[in-house]
Design a protein around this nucleic acid. Structure first.
Lengths: 170, 170
DNA sequence: AACCCTAAGCTAACACCGTTAGCCAACCGC
DNA sequence: GCGGTTGGCTAACGGTGTTAGCTTAGGGTT
């Protein structure tokens, strides 16, 4: 295992455990057993390190989402993944995608299941917007305490299933 | 005009013009004509200053959204406001709402039009999720360049109008 | 075997961030 | 006139990402 991958490993662990504000070059260095400046012998800068984490998240998503064959199952999988990896999910979705730092195809791989489960690109994007919006508001603590988030998901998914499967049911 | 409001004024201008990474205590101080530490004579800390900006954003949203009488008009207004104030919108939606630092009622005021235009709280939250998700992905540059974001909005809104206005049309 | 070059660690330091401590001048009420 | 509050200042602290420059170990070539 290359040193870079080892650094990404401990950075991911650090991020998932303690959140994005704990993802510090010095903290990563300590966890990997070196001083912060030495990290720069293996990683050009922090942005590229974060891009590596984002790439891992996208491929992990692609694997999980591919198992969901229906719109409802995919929505459940999407929410579930985000709740299992809240800090990574936020790192992945806050800020623009560093596409030039990502291995090619990884973005499409994560998006493919959405396309498979809806009828068109526009429908896939709208569903993505719904799912991302709901989970993003949930993770950011924007809903009032005690809000019935499940009900919002049910309503949203119902609206989409009514539309996207119309006339396509076998 | 109190000094605090003046500080909020220039902070808001700074944020909307140069983005959140330019919203620095030193930069605010310079723009308002004093050194950064002197700001603390008028504002307890940066978090409260940001809460002031968020409160302004919420009341501005409440005023604009209240004019939208249909679901479609509200969605258009929501997207339009966010695109006119992208940095403020992101400041308002990234991170949890500092409810204890906000004037009471301002959160509800901004949310009320969503409730008025849908049938239930769950529908309002689902629609909010859709709108927030789409604009958030758009502002973060997550859609591929050249993506037809308008089409995604049309599809999403269509899904919701089909559901929420069912049986309620006059 | 002697040499050199590269890889990979280190410390010191820089510029910037939010924030605190402590000082000082101006102004206001008595 | 005088004391206290208000509102500015500088200096500084601990934190961030990052760079410069040094050192040491290891491997390859002659």
């Amino acid at each position: 295992m290359s040193r870079r991958e080892q650094i990404l490993d401990v950075a991911l662990e650090l991020l998932e455990r303690d959140g994005v504000q704990a993802l510090t070059m010095r903290a990563i260095g300590e966890a990997v057993g070196m001083r912060a400046p030495s990290l720069y012998k293996h990683v050009p800068d922090k942005q590229s390190l974060e891009a590596g984490l984002i790439a891992r998240g996208l491929t992990a998503q692609a694997q999980v989402f591919a198992r969901a064959k229906t719109l409802t199952a995919l929505a459940r999988a999407y929410r579930g993944w985000a709740r299992e990896h809240p800090h990574l999910y936020r790192l992945m979705t806050d800020g623009p995608l560093p596409r030039d730092l990502l291995p090619p195809g990884v973005e499409d791989a994560a998006a493919a299941p959405l396309l498979a489960v809806t009828g068109s690109v526009a429908q896939a994007r709208a569903l993505w917007g719904l799912a991302h919006g709901l989970i993003s508001l949930e993770l950011a603590g924007r809903f009032p305490p005690g809000a019935d988030v499940d009900a919002a998901w049910r309503v949203g998914i119902a609206a989409f299933t009514a539309t996207t499967t119309k006339g396509r049911t076998p």
